[in-house]
Design a protein around this nucleic acid. Structure first.
Length: 399
DNA sequence: AAGGTGAGCAACCGCTCCTCC
DNA sequence: AGGAGGAGCGGTTGCTCACCT
């Protein structure tokens, strides 16, 4: 590989772990917890660096790890979350109980990415590669789109980072209230910081997903704000909407989004208007509301409050209104991220899954038949994702 | 049967972030 | 406030095994 070793110490073993080493590590952690990883190998009698031990534990030895192939729901979750979060494997893993980020990363790289590519979908943007065909001036529009995506991504990361910080602050205070900790095996990590992030991660991710789901609606009537390419003609997709406020602060219909300093604002606003979409949006809104009063946060620290605010992302970087107009020209009314093709991908595995179950799978491949089925499926899908999100992470000591 | 090839997965590496002093 | 050390994350590598010729 030609790289310098991660540990200066010569004589430390590298490469695959032997069962004896596993046993030593396991026995030590079960008895003492891992504590300081760097000090662990010596205490456990291992000729490994602490980093290697940590990796072996988190990716393989942890008792709560689920191994084996991913099921359909997990695939769906990964794909949707990847569309939402990008290569944030640890964040994605926090929504998949008992799966490690490494496993998810590998599964993405070896299976899902290829499947997307095979179907002509860009695994990075989750958009069709022949996107340009939809526009008269393909290259210009694509460039605008790319710029758009970059700005979006940057803003999103910024917001997420903020969520993490806030969540950590909150979880610290929650931690102070939780006096007892299980002995021996320390969830996730022995360090206080890690425990905090362990608590914090689900909060952040839930916020993002809630927003995503809440903002999912038919993007617009008439000109079809979404990018609806006709592998399946009636395909609509979860959509995030960018709202541009050039000068005046704006209040959006999803809830007070105020722009400061005339900075443009990104808002997860379902543009609603269509009946089918309304179902989804209302559900999303309901979820948001109910979530804010959820018993998850008895101290009323209300993560939703922050999530709503955090979904209002001030763009500090250059924002070019031209890109929005460019998008509008080819039917994108301020649409930045879309995911309809992810669903196409999922149909592939859904078909397999359904046929395994001996059910009829013809709905997934048929074009045009059953748009109500489609919306029902999506509704169910998002419900499952949300319930997964709401229920899973706390189960795992790691997450 | 033997060698070649590619996919899948475990593990490593370096960077970044966080915490503590 | 800032530096040091530790932990976590994402990208990448290389080994193993199954399949193909």
């Amino acid at each position: 590989m030609g790289r310098s070793p991660c540990c200066e110490k010569v004589g430390l073993k590298k490469g695959p772990w032997t069962p004896e080493e596993d046993q030593k590590l396991l026995a030590y952690i079960e008895e003492h917890g891992h504590g300081c990883w760097r000090a662990l190998p010596a205490k456990a009698g291992l000729q490994r660096c602490g980093k290697s031990c940590r990796l072996r534990w988190t990716n393989y030895l942890r008792p709560d790890i689920k191994r084996g192939s991913f099921n359909l729901q997990e695939e769906q979750t990964i794909i949707q979350l990847h569309a939402l979060l990008g290569n944030r494997w640890s964040a994605i893993a926090s929504h998949l109980p008992n799966r490690t980020d490494n496993e998810i990363k590998n599964y993405w790289n070896t299976h899902l990415k290829k499947r997307l590519a095979k179907m002509g979908i860009d695994p990075v943007t989750h958009k069709p590669k022949n996107d340009a065909l939809l526009c008269n001036d393909g290259q210009t529009k694509n460039a605008a789109n790319l710029s758009h995506m970059a700005q979006w991504e940057s803003a999103r990361l910024e917001a997420e980072a903020r969520l993490v910080r806030e969540s950590k602050l909150r979880s610290h205070s929650i931690q102070h209230q939780l006096s007892s900790t299980p002995p021996g095996y320390v969830p996730g990590s022995g360090s206080g910081s890690d425990s905090a992030s362990t608590l914090a991660q689900p909060l952040r991710s839930v916020d993002v997903l809630k927003a995503w789901s809440g903002g999912w609606s038919k993007s617009s009537e008439g000109n079809g704000g979404g990018l609806n390419i006709g592998i399946r003609g009636d395909l609509e997709s979860p959509t995030s909407t960018v709202t541009l406020s050039e000068n005046a602060p704006q209040v959006m219909n999803s809830g007070a989004i105020i722009g400061e300093n005339s900075n443009p604002i990104i808002d997860f606003v379902g543009t609603s208007g269509s009946t089918e979409a309304g179902i989804i949006k209302e559900e999303g809104e309901h979820d948001w509301k109910s979530f804010s009063h959820s018993s998850h946060f008895p101290d009323n620290s209300a993560p939703l409050t922050s999530s709503l605010h955090d979904m209002t992302i001030s763009m500090e970087g250059p924002w070019n209104p031209e890109s929005l107009r460019a998008n509008s020209d080819c039917g994108h009314v301020g649409i930045v991220m879309e995911e309809g093709f992810t669903d196409l991908l999922l149909n592939d595995s859904a078909e397999k899954s359904l046929s395994y179950n001996g059910k009829d799978s013809d709905h997934s491949g048929a074009s045009g038949s059953g748009s109500s089925d489609y919306y029902e499926d999506n509704k169910n899908y998002w419900n499952s994702i949300l319930s997964l999100v709401n229920s899973s992470p706390s189960n795992s000591p790691m997450f």
